[in-house]
Design a binder for these strands. Sequence first.
DNA 1: CATCACACCTGAGTGC
DNA 2: TGCACTCAGGTGTGAT
Length: 281
Amino acid sequence: MPELPEVETIVRGLHVEIAGRILRDVWVRRRDLRLPIPREFPERVIGRRILAVQRRAKYLLFRLDDPLRADGTLILAHLGMTGRFAVQTPPFPELGAHDHVVFLTDDGRRTTFSDPRRFGLLSLGYSDRLAEHPLLKDLGPEPLDASWTGEQLLGKVAARRSPLKALLLNQSVVAGLGNIYVSEALFRARLSPLRLGCSLKLVEARRLVRAVRDVLQDAIAAGGSTLRDYVQADGSIGGFQTHFSVYEQQDQSCSHRGCPGVIRRIVQAGRSTYFCPACQR
DNA sequence: CATCACACCTGAGTGC
DNA sequence: TGCACTCAGGTGTGAT
């Protein structure tokens, strides 16, 4: 489900709600997510204070204080397709079959991690060794960082014979994009998802970088996109799904000024791609 | 490498 | 109502 804008929205909401709180108890009701939750998870986090909630790619990072380390422990979470975090205030609703982990905080509230499909994960790491973490070490640059440039992108894809769609989905090329925002960014950059990496010119790579950044920023400003499962930390839905230019817009006319094209849906590597064959070249 | 099929798992929607 | 089937914001593996 959640791509960078959805994760960023949830992270910001969680930071406001639970940063500064102490974890009084943690219930792991089901361990077998995409990766098993470590057995020592509760003992490692109970009693710790949440210092901050941050994001790297599509991972949520909960930084915890830790009297045993100069720079502490952290919880890594990935939402997969259907994962969600919800901060709840008493009286608490009954827990459901998909509420796999419950965090009780010292303010009397609780935060639940739910994930019907169990493609998500919860793991542990150390703040001072983030870059070496097995789940993070191969991730590419953050697209919203100023250090990610057209030159940087071109350096990664110039020798590749994969289509741009696949390259942008590849988290080691650039981190955080998923199926929605790849289609949307390629549309804004007027580049065909079928173009191969090795065909990209510098001006096009720069255009693509700008388009990726613009669409991600617009989506974050709208609180992300809700198709089916995604909700913000407070349970409200996102707003960007009404701004899609191409995603799930097949047979609609192209929204680029003066373009006579019609949006098409194709399948690349088993996943839907939406684009305008007329203006995306 | 690159591409594809397939796997993980559940729920929603559709057509008969 | 039931059943079969398709599809879904992700990621990883193994075959070719």
